[in-house]
Amino acid sequence: MPKDALISTQSRHRMTTRIWHWSNALCLLILLMSGLTIFNAHPRLYWGEYGANDDHAWMAVGSSQTMGYLRLGELRIETTGALGNWQDSQGRTQTWAFPGWATIPSHYSLADGRRWHFFFAWIFSVGLALFMVMSLWNRHIQRDLHMRRDQWRPSHIWRSFRAHLDLRVIRQTAGEDYNSIQKMSYIGVIFLLLPLMIFSGLAMSPAMDANWPFLTDLFGGRQSARSLHFIGAFLLLLFFLVHMVMVLLSGPFRQTRSMITGGEGKEPLA
């Protein structure tokens, strides 16, 4: 038996994976909530290099003392009570875009929101870089996340998709190797979505614009980078929600315990 296969019998999740998982979960939650505080300072999104109040926003949260609404292109959806017009914990009407329960701090403070955001952005970025290096080093990526050639076949992906709709299959296969949809999700998040968040964030920085002008160009301008940063945040939120549903369906206690203690070993890989 090869040496690395022996290691994989010791636990379901390696120590590096577990540490990163929880520090990353904390960072992403704080980054999302402090990011919503920052968004509240100017709840409008644009495409291109520039964009301010007189320019066309493809997405905007509007508010007045009586109502709140979300505008997507030409579509206007009333969101009173949720976005743009909501009651705070003292029952007062607030007209910031995202409500206090979704932001850090829970009252509006752009300066404080930025402090939280940048501090945890550093932990998140360094953590992601370390996790990538460690996971290549300990072959977590090559062994557990790499898509085998046959897993790319549409029929295989379709089977994997159907299996996700069957509660029994989800429960039975919970401890096995990752299926193709799991692998695509994890690889997509770790190598595309999370780096996108870092680089689209940096592309909004005027100092980085001087240092690395190609970065802002890559995203099609500073305001496009800001829009993509926002879209990326909500894709991560979507990933989190699906992740939660899958954990709940597949045995939440066993899954959570194995991400804390490492869990029971899986069968050695063939």
Binding site: H42, R44, G51, A52
Partner: peptide, 8 residues
């Protein structure tokens, strides 16, 4: 680039 997020 304004700290609020808009640019001109």
């Amino acid at each position: 680039d304004c700290v609020e997020g808009w640019s001109a």
